[in-house]
């Protein structure tokens, strides 16, 4: 545990979350390591997605959400400093379904940098190319950058979404079941991409696919009813779980 504290990129302490009167997270504490892939698993409704969305404060968009506890990213408490823009440029997000805007591929990837005030054409070109390369989709789309992003296949769209996220040069990328809407081949491509990306980024991924968690992640947290039941090196969680409920879940006895 000592070693992980040294490199903790995100440190969550005693986090509880309420939707109105309903509590969804119960004092969750968790340290997420830099440049590792951390998987969040658990049955649907266990709070894993809700937890993920607290890390870039996307839950702020929902009326009546109340949060207690601390989330520290790079030594800064993200709920105390009120600069959500800065937080979200630092913590990127990829959603369950590809959600590209109805614009060209180029404009989609350049969208975030432009919103940050980058207008220089050359600089934008460079960011777009780098990001698309970074998301391993450059070769497939380089000849059609100006055509609609919505004409791409679902798998391609999701990788452009990843490119759009890394165009912001974030430190952390949150992925909310990024392959649940994709076919097996596209899923495999995204998983390969995740393996590449962790050299540069800290990745937190929510998945309900246990093989995926086992394949891509370094550490795994098992959520149940808004609590963390077990958090350990992925291998241990899957082959040597300490808690009976974790074992039941990873062996498919419920969920």
């Amino acid at each position: 545990m000592n070693q992980s504290e040294e490199t903790a990129k995100i440190s969550v302490k005693d986090l509880s979350l309420f939707y109105g009167d309903k509590q969804a997270l119960y004092s969750v504490s968790l340290d997420i390591e830099e440049k590792k892939v951390t998987a969040l698993i658990g049955p649907s409704g266990c709070g894993k997605s809700t937890f993920l969305r607290t890390l870039n404060r996307m839950n702020d968009l929902i009326d009546g959400v109340k949060i207690t506890g601390d989330i520290v990213v790079d030594n800064e408490d993200i709920y105390k400093s009120n600069d959500v823009i800065k937080l979200r440029t630092k913590v990127g997000m990829v959603f369950q379904k590809p959600n590209l805007f109805p614009m060209s591929i180029y404009d989609n990837v350049a969208y975030g940098p432009r919103a940050q005030g980058i207008k220089n054409k050359k600089e934008l070109n460079k960011i777009v190319e780098e990001s698309l390369r970074g998301a391993a989709i450059w070769d497939e789309v380089k000849d059609r950058l100006k055509s609609s992003a919505l004409g791409l296949s679902g798998g391609q769209q999701q990788r452009v979404c990843i490119a759009r996220a890394i165009a912001m040069k974030p430190d952390i990328i949150l992925m909310d079941e990024p392959t649940s809407a994709l076919d097996p081949i596209s899923t495999l491509k995204v998983e390969e991409l995740i393996a590449q990306l962790k050299k540069e980024y800290t990745i937190v991924i929510v998945t309900h696919n246990m093989q995926q968690a086992a394949r891509v992640s370094d550490k795994t947290a098992f959520f149940l009813s808004g609590e963390i039941i077990e958090y350990d090196v992925t291998n241990n969680v899957f082959s040597n779980p300490k808690d009976q409920r974790t074992e039941d879940y990873v062996t498919g006895r419920f969920g």
């Binding site: 823009i85 800065k86 440029t89 630092k90 975030g112 940098p113 940050q116 980058i118 780098e130 990001s131 390369r133 970074g134 998301a135 391993a136 890394i166 912001m168 040069k169 390969e192 590449q196 990306l197 540069e200």
Partner: peptide, 14 residues
């Protein structure tokens, strides 16, 4: 499939 190292620039930082 190899991605070039991405250099950090000043988006949002600071």
């Amino acid at each position: 499939m190899t991605s070039p190292p991405i250099e950090k620039h000043n988006i949002g930082n600071g």
